[in-house]
């Protein structure tokens, strides 16, 4: 399989480099573990691993920065994906401390399985909008255009909250949508609209605000729109329960509310 050009890199060099990487990374995580659980001045330390819905991507980065500033020595790690995917990972034993879901269905499932400590708290709300590229090439004016099979249209997959809510809204409006793709999460969908590959997609109003330099929003009539409520909870198997409780308290605090306001999240 190898010819002269490839055999110039000695295998020993490659193996050595790999070993160095392993040792370097191993050393890093060992250091993290030694501080994990160590109490800082605020009584919180270590790492807080937060699983958050994809629509919370930007706001969570601010929560991370804000919480870390208020609690020196604490490292917040954010893992964003579709809520249902995260819920599944948690039930499979992912070592998360906090879960922030974009719908109550997924959270209710975790509650039913006994995976959360206290009753979940609603911390934000959201509504749907239609994201279109800036120049709106499909001339989309409302949900009714989703029945037009000459347009390139996307929804989230039905199993993630934005896909579920979008289908609820379309059903309320009595529209049988003609869809070209079902994206795995809301950010994947808004990215396809932003790049102009899709004429439109049903996302949250906060996603449009977050991508306001590339997409425009088309409002969905209030009678068809859906209220998405975001619950947050500390997980039973949280490796850092103290840190998790502090983080949830921070999200629910006035400072947390300010951050949510900045990103256009409504009050629950």
């Amino acid at each position: 399989m190898s010819d002269g050009a490839e055999s110039r890199v000695r295998p020993v060099t490659v193996i050595g480099a790999l070993l160095w990487l392993v040792v370097a990374c191993g050393g890093g995580s060992a250091t993290t573990e030694s501080t994990s659980g160590a109490e800082t001045g605020n009584g919180v330390g270590g790492t807080v691993l937060v699983f958050a819905a994809a629509s919370l991507t930007d706001v969570m980065a601010d929560f991370e920065a804000g919480f870390e500033a208020a609690h020196p020595g604490v490292d917040v790690e954010i893992n964003v994906a579709g809520s249902s995917s995260l819920g599944e990972q948690i039930l499979e034993g992912a070592p998360a401390d906090v879960f922030a879901s974009a719908n109550e269905t997924t959270m209710d499932r975790l509650v039913a399985e006994g995976a959360v400590v206290d009753p979940p708290r609603a911390f934000a709300a959201n509504q749907l909008q239609i994201a279109v590229p800036f120049d709106n090439p499909g001339g989309i004016t409302g949900l009714a255009d989703f029945a037009d099979d000459s347009l390139l249209l996307g929804l989230c997959i039905e199993t993630v909250p934005c896909g579920d809510f979008a289908r609820q809204a379309l059903a309320k409006a009595g529209i049988e949508p003609s869809i070209d793709t079902e994206e795995p999460d809301v950010r994947a969908l808004s990215a396809k609209v932003a790049s102009g590959e899709l004429d439109g997609g049903v996302v949250y109003e906060t996603d449009i605000l977050a991508a306001s330099d590339t997409v425009a929003g088309v409002v969905i009539q209030p009678e068809y729109n859906v209220d998405a409520v975001y619950p947050i909870a500390v997980l039973v198997d949280a490796p850092n329960r103290t840190g998790a409780r502090e983080f949830v308290a921070f999200v629910l605090s006035e400072g947390g509310r300010d951050i949510l306001d900045r990103y256009g999240f409504r009050e629950p």
Binding site: G154, D180, K192
Partner: peptide
């Protein structure tokens, strides 16, 4: 596939 072609049952799934 999911990034380039999207995801739709019967067409790209």
């Amino acid at each position: 596939t999911v990034t380039f072609a999207g995801n739709l049952q019967g067409r790209t799934q």
